[in-house]
């Protein structure tokens, strides 16, 4: 890898140049809407109503953002989102790791059958179980609670599948070497195997967090009280009737605001996201 990239620095071939230009062009095309959104969010709503082209010149203002922060509940919603997404992510990682280790390393009755059942869970769309889940949660009085928002996401077949495959790919000799090194089963899991799954943990954690953060469907149904809104629901609730035409700048600032934490997350975990998406072998 390093020899390849250093080779590029020494002599860039015409092919490489063309690819570079194409990549830059593609990046510009993909970034244009984002730039557009950010520009709109920095404009006064009234000004945009009269002249859309005003987006290309001053005056710019941060008033829209000030207005978001002035919404009394917004910090509560952020907190809710952090609790729900963070809690879900941590618990998904713990459960998926334990289950993955079990499927990969322990032998117990019906192991393969159970694994197939887990995989079948991948094929069940949320909408199919929604009504039953709603009734169940309503009967359990789980609506408008954090566990009500978190629990459905915990049934995460993808995480179990991913971690099982990852543990399976770790050579058994490592367990055996650790066994000869007097390590207990838990210590082997905790000190030898788990550290090797960090790339998978990061991938799974990021995907879980992102999809939970962006989730609109279940929080809309379960968190119906204003103080239990997540950020996505809360922000949507502040939109006025004619937001598309009368409050465009405000609308865009909301989008930027809700997306910012994800951008920050991405910057921190960029390395893992790239490997996760490219499916490249880790380790």
């Amino acid at each position: 890898m390093s020899s390849m990239s250093s080779g590029r620095i020494v002599g860039r071939s015409t092919g490489d140049r063309i690819i570079l230009v194409l990549v830059i062009a593609l990046a510009l095309i993909m970034m244009a809407p984002i730039a557009w959104i950010i520009a709109l969010s920095l404009k006064d709503n009234k000004e945009l109503m009269t002249d859309m082209n005003s987006v290309f010149h001053a005056p710019y203002t941060i008033n829209n953002y000030v207005n978001i922060l002035a919404t009394s509940s917004v910090f509560r919603w952020i907190l809710n989102s952090v609790i729900v997404s963070g809690g879900l992510t941590i618990m998904t990682l713990v459960l998926s790791s334990l289950a993955g280790y079990g499927f990969a390393r322990l032998s117990f009755p019906f192991r393969n059958t159970l694994f197939v059942i887990v995989l079948l869970g991948l094929a069940v769309p949320e909408q199919a179980v929604l009504i039953a889940r709603h009734q169940l949660f309503s009967w359990l009085k789980f609506h408008n609670t954090y566990h009500g928002l978190i629990l459905p996401g915990l049934a995460a077949p993808f995480g179990v599948f991913l971690m099982t495959q990852y543990f399976r790919a770790i050579p058994k000799e490592l367990d055996e070497a650790a066994l000869l090194d007097n390590a207990s089963r838990f210590k082997i899991f905790w000190k030898v195997l788990l550290p090797l799954t960090i790339p998978a943990q990061a991938t799974l954690g990021i995907f879980t967090f992102l999809s939970s953060w962006n989730d609109y469907f279940w929080p809309l149904i379960s968190g119906t009280k204003k103080e239990m809104y997540t950020l996505t629901i809360g922000i949507a609730s502040t939109q006025t009737n004619f937001a598309q035409s009368e409050g465009l700048g405000f609308l865009m600032s909301q989008a930027v605001f809700a997306g910012a934490p994800i951008l920050i997350l991405y910057l921190f975990f960029q390395k893992y996201i790239v490997t996760a998406v490219s499916g490249a072998a880790v380790r």
């Binding site: 000799e173 490592l174 055996e176 070497a177 066994l179 000869l180 090194d181 390590a183 090797l196 380790r283």
Partner: peptide, 18 residues
């Protein structure tokens, strides 16, 4: 295995990568 007072060198070495 841990109580047999035996050490083993594996063909793949099985070093802890991390």
């Amino acid at each position: 295995p841990g109580q047999r007072d035996i050490a083993m060198v594996f063909q793949s070495y099985a070093l802890y990568p991390h």
